[in-house]
């Protein structure tokens, strides 16, 4: 393993991490402010990707598509919050899990109904195609670099939003004391809808950007959703900082594990068996990481008191 390869793999881990952060920040905000566990978050990821692919296909412009996808995901989020989610805030987690599980079924099958079963194709925009040369002689795809950059900007943006703005103040107040903020005369249901739509929009953005790299198909949100849950559990549910640290940790551990473990096993095993076993352990690695963290810190790395 050369240094430049390691550097490139670190970048890959970082890129996966920033994507996970976009998903996880929405989840963790919604939990922190409203106390809601939302399995249907992956559906917004899917919505963002589908609308982006569709609009890009119609208009021929990726950026218009990306904007439309993000806004559509946020709008669908607001709609779902208004129609279903707000009835769940006072329910226990079991009801929340089930209702949002039902939403997954409705969204997945509904999307299949609308768009059919074949994957849609979305290409990286021409302006971001190709690769650039970085220090250590690393050639790296420009688009992935842009994703990392966008992730960093959004992390900063979220930080500013929460620490500097009135909305952020209300979010923080909501996290600390839900009854209190209502008593202070803040229109709490609008706040909740806004927060939920914000989370959905971020998920839609993640789905749209990743859709251009991979494929846009029904069910694409589910693997990401599970990873995002691992992220927020590791980071501490309700903590944005935890989501960031958890996302980067999961991204890097998952990527490096997949690359390094087969090599490690090759030290004492026959090559083809080693790559099989290595791949197997690597796919379990982040769950092992999560279990270990929870054994020592049952409420995650940056536990939030509720």
């Amino acid at each position: 393993m050369t240094l430049s390869l390691l550097f490139e793999q670190l970048l890959n881990g970082l890129q996966l991490g920033t994507m996970l952060f976009l998903m996880a920040s929405g989840l963790t905000l919604v939990f922190g402010v409203m106390g809601l566990i939302n399995l249907a978050h992956g559906s917004f990821y899917m919505t963002g990707a589908f609308v982006t692919a569709w609009v890009t296909g119609t208009t021929g412009n990726f950026w218009v598509g990306l904007l439309a996808g993000t806004l559509a995901a946020a709008a669908v989020g607001a709609l779902v919050e208004f129609a279903v989610i707000r009835r769940l805030y006072h329910r226990d987690h079991l009801d929340q899990v089930l209702a949002t599980f039902a939403l997954i079924l409705i969204f997945s099958e509904g999307t299949r109904w609308l768009y059919g079963s074949s994957p849609l194709w979305l290409n990286v925009p021409d302006s971001l195609a190709g690769s650039v040369t970085l220090p250590f002689g690393v050639e790296y795809p420009l688009y992935r670099l842009a994703i990392i950059g966008m992730g960093i900007l959004i992390a900063i943006g979220l930080y500013l939003l929460i620490s500097r703005t009135r909305l952020g103040m209300r979010i923080r107040a909501g996290e600390n004391d839900r009854e209190m903020i209502g008593a202070l005369g803040v229109d709490i249901s609008t706040l909740y809808t806004l927060v939920f739509a914000l989370g959905a929009g971020l998920a839609g953005l993640a789905g749209a950007t990743i859709g251009a790299l991979q494929s846009v198909q029904v069910g694409m949100g589910e693997p990401v959703l599970i990873l995002a849950f691992v992220v927020i559990v590791i980071g501490g549910i309700g903590s944005i900082k935890g989501a960031l640290v958890g996302a980067l940790l999961v991204g890097v551990v998952d990527t490096l594990g997949r690359v390094l473990l087969p090599d490690v096993f090759k030290l004492f095993m026959e090559a083809s068996a080693a790559s099989g076993v290595g791949a197997a352990i690597a796919s379990m690695l982040i769950y092992i990481l999560m279990a270990i963290i929870l054994i020592f810190k049952p409420n995650g790395l940056f536990a939030v008191k509720h």
Binding site: L5, Q9, L16, P141, T255, V259, P262, A271, S275, A279
Partner: peptide, 24 residues
Amino acid sequence: ELANEVYTQLGQTDYAAEIAQIRA
């Protein structure tokens, strides 16, 4: 000879790590 023999996850959609290995 084999430069490397790599198994990916079934249903995997992101191959950045494998492509980096191929490059190197």
